[in-house]
Design a protein around this nucleic acid. Structure first.
Lengths: 133, 133
DNA sequence: CCGGATCCTGGCCGATACTG
DNA sequence: CAGTATCGGCCAGGATCCGG
């Protein structure tokens, strides 16, 4: 988030929407939710995660994990063998987030056709408005 | 694009996580959730929304509303008086999204202190690691 | 194997000005 | 009042090299 202090948003949603925006900024990025869901199935090492996701860059995987770790949702465990081994796991706190996130994911899966349909209809309508022969 | 035709992400999350990413891309932006919540209280006209949010630019309000309308979550109603009047409202479909979103928002409000705390702890620990006197 | 550092690009978003 | 158009800054995020 940005620096608060000047942050007056609506007046009545003050704390509520600030909190919501904060968490949405965390998990609303490109990879966080996916990581949370995958880690929800059990601990994984770095390279497993990287292979599991397959579209993510090493950099973003590291950054996203760091962010989640910083907010207490992910636990990072280093085993100083050679070569080194690093495992990531959801904390109990992270698990409490898993529930509402899964809820949202479920909604997404259930209603995807409707969204697609609405989207197509909208685009068709727009095209008609624009293309006036 | 990596593997055209055979888009394999994780193998089993294929459709699920695609759908999730799609919806998160929609509502994970800067203003969508806020708009959904506000519109959840009833229909509002453009200028009311603009005043209600107070930090949003005219441009982003328009764009966000368009996006939500495109996906079938918001209904736009024009009353061709003079000056013109445009009302926005959640569709029934939009209302079904309101529930899981509210769930998430609730989580955010409930757990904000813990996040803050974890964040602080993490930053302190990092500082200790860096600053070796 | 893990992840830090650096460069670079696309797009998001805000500010402003202009139409109907 | 409601919306479009244009410009510009900023940052997320991908590619790559390097170091432990």
């Amino acid at each position: 988030m940005k620096s608060p202090g000047k942050g007056k948003i609506t007046g009545r949603f003050d704390a509520d929407c600030l909190a919501t925006r904060e968490i949405l900024t965390r998990i609303g990025d490109k990879w966080s939710v996916l990581l949370i869901v995958i880690l929800g199935e059990g601990p994984q090492r770095f390279s497993e995660l990287k292979r599991a996701i397959e579209g993510i860059s090493q950099r973003m995987l590291t950054l996203t994990l760091r962010g989640l770790e910083r907010d207490g949702m992910v636990k990072r465990t280093v085993t100083p063998t050679n070569p080194p081994r690093v495992d990531y796991d959801l904390t109990p706190f992270g698990h409490t987030l898993l529930a509402p996130v899964a809820e949202l994911a479920l909604w997404a899966q259930r209603h995807r056709p409707e969204v697609q349909q609405a989207r197509d209809a909208f685009d068709r309508a727009e095209k008609k408005t624009v293309g006036r022969p």
